[in-house]
Computed example of a mutant assay.
Amino acid sequence: MKKIFITLLLLIGSFAVEAQELVWHTDVNKAIEISKKSKKPLLLFFTGSDWCGWCIRLQKEVLKTADFEKWAKENVVLVELDYPRRTPQTPEIKKQNDELQKAFGIQGYPTIHFAKVTNKAGKVNFDGLGSTGYVAGGPVAWLEVANGILKKK
């Protein structure tokens, strides 16, 4: 009976861990609310998910790894700002992403900005902490750069 109980407990535990996968927000306002509550900065990932080779490589080598997942859950609120060529988007998401692309002066992909959110005179402001893109060397090298940026906050 004990073995059945322990096996069942382990099985349920594995489903719970699997269910806690990373959440990439596409609505920046929702991400801002979470950032304010959690006191974590935003990680804004500007990507061309269906055409940008370096974006796809960054996803595969870093953003979809267990090391990144663990780090992200502890340190940031994730926001994906996508500029696809083939994948449809709502007009609201396109407008939001275009405005943020202009606000952050994005010139190429992938670009990742780290920012704190503040309210000044009733307006949302992004206080940039730093930015990066693709970093060769996998999650260890990329996270070293990201941690260096976050230490400045």
Rank of each mutant, 00 (worst) to 15 (best):
K73G: 11
S35M: 03
L63F: 12
V23H: 10
S38L: 09
F45P: 01
V17P: 01
F15W: 13
T47E: 05
K39W: 09
R86M: 04
T90Q: 05
E33P: 02
Q89K: 11
K37R: 14
V77F: 15
T87H: 02
L43C: 04
Q96D: 09
K39Y: 05
D67F: 09
D82W: 05
N97M: 02
L81K: 11
T47L: 01
V17S: 11
I12R: 08
A16S: 14
G13Q: 12
L78S: 11
Q20T: 14
I12D: 04
S49T: 10
T65Q: 06
T65C: 06
E92R: 08
A19V: 06
E21F: 07
Q20P: 02
L42G: 12
K30L: 09
A72W: 11
F68V: 03
K73M: 01
L100A: 09
H25F: 15
R57G: 02
S14L: 09
Q89W: 06
S38P: 00
W71N: 09
S14I: 09
E80I: 08
N75P: 00
T26N: 11
E92G: 12
P91D: 15
D27L: 04
S38M: 07
F68E: 07
E21H: 10
G13A: 15
L42Y: 08
F15E: 13
P91V: 08
L81C: 05
K94M: 15
R85D: 03
I56D: 00
V62F: 03
T65D: 07
E18Q: 15
F45T: 02
V62Y: 03
K94N: 06
A19E: 04
G48W: 12
L42F: 12
R85A: 00
V62W: 01
P41Q: 11
Q96R: 11
I93S: 02
H25M: 10
E21K: 14
N29I: 04
R57C: 01
C55K: 03
F46K: 07
E74F: 00
A66K: 12
G53L: 14
V76D: 12
E92A: 14
A66C: 03
R85C: 00
W51P: 01
S35Q: 01
I34L: 15
F46W: 12
R86W: 13
S49D: 08
K39G: 05
V79N: 15
V28L: 14
Q96A: 01
E99C: 03
A72E: 07
E61H: 10
R57T: 10
K95Y: 06
C55H: 05
S49N: 06
W54G: 08
V76P: 03
K60T: 15
D82A: 12
L78D: 02
Q96W: 03
T65S: 10
E74Y: 08
K39A: 04
W71F: 15
I93C: 06
N75T: 02
L63E: 10
S49Y: 03
L58N: 03
Q89G: 07
E33F: 09
R86G: 10
D82H: 11
G13M: 11
T87L: 14
V28P: 00
L81Q: 13
K73E: 09
E61G: 12
T87D: 03
I93K: 13
K70H: 10
P41T: 08
A19M: 08
K39M: 12
L58T: 07
K30I: 08
V76K: 10
L44T: 02
C55T: 13
F68W: 13
